Simulated assay, not measured.
Amino acid sequence: MRVLHVVQSDAFAGVERHVARLARAQSAHGDQVVVIGGHRARMVETIDDASVRVLPAGSLRQVVRTLRAASRGADVVHVHMTSAEIAAALGSVTSRGLPPVVSTRHFARTRGSGPAAGLTALVARAPVRAQISISQYVADHVDGDSVVVHPGIDDRPDGPSAADRERSVLLVQRLEPEKRTDLGVLAFSASGLHERGWRLLVAGDGSQRPALEELVAHEGLGGHVQLLGPRSDVDELMRSAAVLLAPCPVEGLGLSVLEAMSNGLPVVAAGAGGHLETLAGLDPLALYPPTDVVRAGESLSVLAASTARRDAYGTAARAVQRSRFTPLAQVEGTTAVYRTVLQAPRP
């Protein structure tokens, strides 16, 4: 299969990581893959496959121009996010058409926003022949039918036991309002772990960093909370931390949660969104009522006190990841959608 992925972005956040990992898995499966978009150096590093070309996508005009050229000979154009759908729509009407377009929906909301939402949605939907949702939660909240294909995560080497890990809670996400990193800081404060010599490590950056710095000072957590900024060594952080905290109450699925599971790292997460699909049934402390920082703090405190429980939870989480959230399962599910589209009559 010849696949062209498109994401109109020069960044490297969750969606771009999703695209890079899927492209790598598809190439390993024997597909010919080209990627348009994402921070080029980070995409190339993550894909780690010289046969996968990564082309820039800094603006809508550049994406449309590159898409028209790169789509020649492709079997499927696979777009990610509304801006890429719009690029495909423009590309299809300004050329002799594109190969069938499949769209992955990453967020639990309908297309478009603001006064022109209806027009934006109409244009974006036009070229899309099939939709993939990264979780059932997303599928239940997007416009139109979609097939659920969960992201896959590569196996990690065995990590250290809980007794050999640092006394630290790790939080990995963009520091943007919808992620509610503030709730993570408040949950750590409520846990009292800082009084027992524990630290909260926050990997990521965004518009909320100044507000978070003020919150850390207000809670008296200076010296106990470290805002690490963007990091390329997340796996190393997960192999040394004791618990991952995931406070976002509207997460489509949560790649950092899957990465933690792959590393045998216990997770305490808001009991909402895609977290219910990844963590349900693993441990009673895995999920807490969304925004309830006191309950979240209690779960952190209990897990911190028991290395045996953290080891058991981490082992169970890793087993679930290896059985349900694998690159092969993602490639097979994605290819099934491609084949359905290719076998259907062209509209």
Rank of each mutant, 00 (worst) to 15 (best):
S59P: 05
D182A: 10
M1G: 09
R209V: 11
I153G: 00
V128C: 12
T315H: 05
H80G: 12
R346Q: 01
A116E: 01
P151I: 01
A316C: 06
S161V: 10
D235H: 13
A272Y: 00
L285N: 09
R61K: 11
V337D: 00
V243Q: 09
A241M: 11
D31T: 04
L265G: 09
D48N: 01
L285I: 07
D154P: 06
R196A: 15
D233M: 10
H218S: 15
A246M: 12
E214L: 12
G38D: 06
V3I: 14
P157W: 12
A41T: 15
V341P: 10
P249R: 02
Y313L: 05
A23C: 00
R42S: 14
R53C: 10
E213V: 13
I153K: 00
G223P: 07
H39V: 07
A312Q: 01
R61D: 10
E332P: 03
A20Q: 07
S51F: 02
P266F: 04
A190C: 09
A84R: 02
V257T: 15
A242M: 11
L175F: 08
R209W: 05
L276R: 15
L215N: 10
A163P: 03
L175Q: 11
A242P: 06
P100E: 06
P247F: 03
A57V: 05
V267L: 13
T120I: 15
A11L: 14
P210L: 08
G297I: 13
G297R: 12
R310C: 15
A305N: 11
D10P: 04
L276H: 07
V77E: 13
S323K: 04
L287E: 14
Q8H: 01
H80N: 15
D164K: 11
L255W: 06
S103C: 14
T335A: 08
L287D: 13
L303Y: 04
T334I: 08
R61E: 11
V54T: 07
A162G: 14
R156I: 00
D10Y: 03
A108C: 07
T335I: 06
E219F: 01
P99A: 03
R295F: 07
L183A: 06
V101L: 09
